[in-house]
């Protein structure tokens, strides 16, 4: 039955090559921890993606309760933390995942760097990876404000003051982020929410797609 459904679809859109691209490849010995335990360093990239998936899923559930508004943002997080079943775990996963993803990303970057795996022909993928790193830091910065507690508010104010001191575009940059030249308030919260939930994840997905397609196309770097 399943075979018939597969054949029916395959007849029309020829999915077998897609399947080959995704899953039908071989794993060389030098990256396989079953053969060389030290090859666990090759797991860092995959684990980073795993944490990103955790972040996406936990974040999706958090938005079911979160309200991006200065009256209710903190209240909704407090409610989530104290009243909603298992929400403390979901928020905990999102909170700690944000730190763990930076750690894993750092380890992955260092592995690639010290192995010189970014050398020809993989320069482009390295640059895409560094952009992913920047997007992650942006997600960390914008997500920090959302609970609207003191820590969030004052750290964001410092961040915006730093942005303001950039020559020429500083004030425009601050206004773009905060929604106002002087006030850090309702506008800032909704902007950071939009950036955190729509703009940066959109950029992240596009970059991740390029990152993975390039890995598939170029293969993993050879042994040193």
């Amino acid at each position: 039955m399943l075979q018939k459904i597969y054949d029916w679809i395959d007849d029309r859109i020829d999915i077998t090559p897609i399947w080959r691209d995704i899953a039908d490849h071989e794993v060389p010995e030098h990256v396989n921890p079953a053969h060389h335990f030290s090859a666990f360093v090759y797991c860092f990239g995959g684990l980073t993606f795993f944490v990103v998936v955790i972040q996406i899923l936990s974040g999706m559930f958090l938005t079911m309760y979160y309200v991006p508004d200065i009256e209710n943002a903190w209240q909704s997080v407090y409610y989530l933390q104290t009243e909603v079943a298992h929400a403390q775990i979901v928020r905990g996963m999102h909170h700690w995942g944000a730190s763990v993803v930076i750690v894993m990303l750092l380890l992955h970057t260092l592995r690639v760097f010290f192995q010189g795996a970014y050398k020809k022909p993989r320069e482009l993928n390295w640059m895409v990876g560094v952009l992913i790193f920047f997007v992650m830091l942006g997600l960390g910065f914008t997500g920090y404000l959302l609970p609207w507690d003191n820590k969030a508010y004052f750290a964001t104010q410092v961040g915006l003051e730093i942005a303001e001191q950039v020559p020429f575009i500083g004030e425009a940059l601050k206004t773009l982020l905060a929604g106002d030249a002087t006030i850090v308030g309702a506008q800032t919260l909704t902007r950071f929410f939009a950036i955190h939930v729509f703009f940066l994840p959109g950029a992240l997905f596009a970059l991740l797609a390029v990152h993975f397609i390039l890995i598939r196309r170029q293969g993993i770097s050879g042994p040193l």
Binding site: W74, Y78, H95, N150, K151, Y153
Partner: peptide, 19 residues
């Protein structure tokens, strides 16, 4: 391991922002 971390250390929340 990750879930152990999450369970051992609940995510912090400070008082509501007071400008």
């Amino acid at each position: 391991g990750f879930l152990c971390l999450v369970l051992a250390h609940p995510s912090p929340l400070e008082g509501m922002a007071d400008p």
